[in-house]
Design a protein around this nucleic acid. Structure first.
Length: 494
RNA sequence: GCGAAAGUAGCUCAGCUGGUAGAGCGCGACCUUGCCAAGGUCGAGGUCGCGGGUUCGAACCCCGUCUUUCGCUCCA
């Protein structure tokens, strides 16, 4: 038995394109970097994943409801979230080493050096000056300050710096049909804020009691410095986020619970335990007091597919401040002294999955090259071993040959099944070729209609992963396929 | 943004020291065919990423440009 051939990301990218899962955006115009389109099979798989997530959140938890907020939001939203101030990093390159640094980090490093040398005052002065210049957006002065401080590139040892440039995380656009009157607004860089600004709307209209959650699936947009690794980093991507509102002080318990629940979800959709791990953030973002990523082992290494963050009351507190609208909740539950917990701004535990990353993880995991057959008949087979509930097509129906009434019989079966499952009918080419085509797109079952079918109404079901066949009566098909492809199997495993 | 490599049929790729483009698979039609990419016959499909230059002549040499991949920088 020879070894199964190694698979690379390149194989997966090619397969995704060849079989209608993912196409490069605007390919006829040479493409658009870091943007991809989902094809006829990709959209099915992605929709199935999104649907599983939606049900895992809203159907399995009676205290979680969903919303669908707009992509456009009031500009102050991004002031409150910290995206305007927090993610505009000034960048500078060293011309000799070609290394890029964050200008503020270079200056902070220098300040630390002063502090270590006992010149605390000088260190503070430098930081103040830097803060002032960055506040004024005076990038040229920041560069001059770096040069004046004699900061050198650790690699090249020179001060041959380029100008300082701003890295813009958010995409902006104009709202208002007349150019002069229009306002600059941003395409949302995360869906979370659509949930936060609707926190009270949902809480009041749904009579929600803490703890409760709001789930949302939607597009978000970010400028990436580099876009690599296929759909792992895209400028336009889709998030599946759930913000869970809790009483302050209870957030760590909920954080741990959601961390474990979310891991189970990824296992339930078919990602193997040994390819998943937690990665705990040591350095926390400006809004979090605890953060962990669920990482999947892609062909290019372990990478984040989901983040679970304890966001404290950072977002709601800032929205309250900027909007001047109270974001408080009155908690009627009684504390240990028998008094209501009363008014507070809830703490938030966030679970945030990249739909595209989950898709890529599931696709990479399903993509299998294996050797089948014995001796001289041994050959390579490529098969997408998707969880049956996620597969674009649930079953394919083939008449063994295109004559003698077999196609008519097969069409009858197709008609009976198509209202329940997405099925594929094909009568051309040799049946082996048809089986192979279905393997390539991950169809779990192939139903073959042969001469025996005409006599006793039985067909063969060929199983994708084992390639084994079993003969069943036509009347059993719905139950047999239905169980295998049911979402219930996934939801029960969470 | 820097460095390196690549761009030829739907896909994977070949194409020598410059001489008007090829294979395999796939695709379409027909014939054959009783279960794992089956055989046969015929057929469609390419201004060789784009623009310029050198040359009698460029897929090939030179310059520019775009796109992709890998590495570095960044990563909420």
């Amino acid at each position: 038995m020879s070894q199964a051939p190694a698979t690379s990301l390149q194989d997966i990218v090619s397969h995704a394109k060849e079989y209608g899962f993912v196409f490069p955006s605007s390919e006829i115009y040479d493409g658009l970097q870091a943007v991809y389109d989902y094809g006829q099979n990709g959209v099915e798989l992605k929709n199935n994943l999104k649907n599983m997530w939606w049900k895992a959140m809203t159907q399995l938890n009676d205290n979680i409801v969903g919303i669908d907020a707009a992509i456009f939001m009031h500009p102050l939203t991004w002031k409150a979230s910290g995206h305007v101030d927090g993610f505009n990093d000034p960048m500078i390159d060293n011309k000799d080493s070609k290394k890029r640094y964050r200008a503020d980090q270079l200056l902070e490093g220098k300040a630390e050096q002063y502090a270590a040398e006992g010149q605390a005052e000088k260190a503070q002065e430098l930081l103040n000056e830097m803060g002032r210049l960055l506040g004024d957006n005076n990038l040229e002065a920041v560069r001059e300050l770096i040069i004046a401080e004699g900061i050198k590139c650790p690699i090249s040892g020179t001060s041959n710096w380029t100008e300082v440039r701003q890295f813009n995380l958010m995409f902006s656009t104009q709202v208002g049909s007349v150019a002069e009157d229009s306002n600059l607004i941003y395409l949302r860089p995360e869906t979370a804020q659509g949930i936060f600004v609707n926190f009270l709307n949902v809480q009041k209209s749904g009579r929600m009691k803490i703890p409760f959650g709001i789930a949302q699936i939607g597009k978000a947009f970010r400028n990436e410095i580099v876009a690599r690794q296929f759909t792992f980093r895209m400028r336009e991507f889709e998030q599946m986020e759930m913000q869970f509102f809790v009483r302050p002080g209870t957030e760590m318990a909920w954080y741990e619970q959601w961390r474990d629940t979310r891991l189970k979800f990824h296992q339930a959709v078919g990602l193997p335990t040994e390819k998943l791990k937690f990665h705990i953030h040591e350095k926390l973002a400006h809004y979090a007091n605890a953060a962990v990523d669920i990482e999947y082992q892609f062909p290019f290494g372990f990478r984040e597919i989901e983040g679970i963050h304890s966001r404290t009351d950072f977002d709601l507190k800032n929205h309250q401040e900027l909007s001047k609208k109270k974001q408080q909740y009155f908690d009627n539950d009684l504390d240990e002294n028998g008094k209501p917990f009363g008014n507070y701004i809830p703490y938030v535990v966030e679970t945030s999955v990249g739909a595209d990353r989950l898709f890529l993880a599931v696709f990479c995991n399903a993509f299998t090259k294996e050797m089948v057959g014995e001796g001289e008949n041994q050959k390579e087979r490529t098969v997408l071993k998707l969880h049956p509930a996620l597969a674009p097509f649930k079953a394919a129906i083939f008449p063994l040959v295109k004559k003698d009434g077999l196609p008519e019989k097969a069409r009858e079966i197709e008609k009976a099944l198509k209202t329940e499952f997405r099925v594929f009918y094909e009568e051309r080419d040799a049946i082996g070729k048809r089986y192979t085509r279905q393997d390539l797109i991950g169809t779990p079952f192939c139903i073959a209609v042969d001469y025996q079918t005409l006599e006793d109404n039985t067909v063969t079901i060929r199983h994708r992963d084992s390639m084994e066949q079993e003969r069943v009566h036509i009347s059993e098909l719905k139950a047999k396929i239905g169980y295998a492809v049911s979402e219930q199997r996934i939801l029960e495993a969470i």
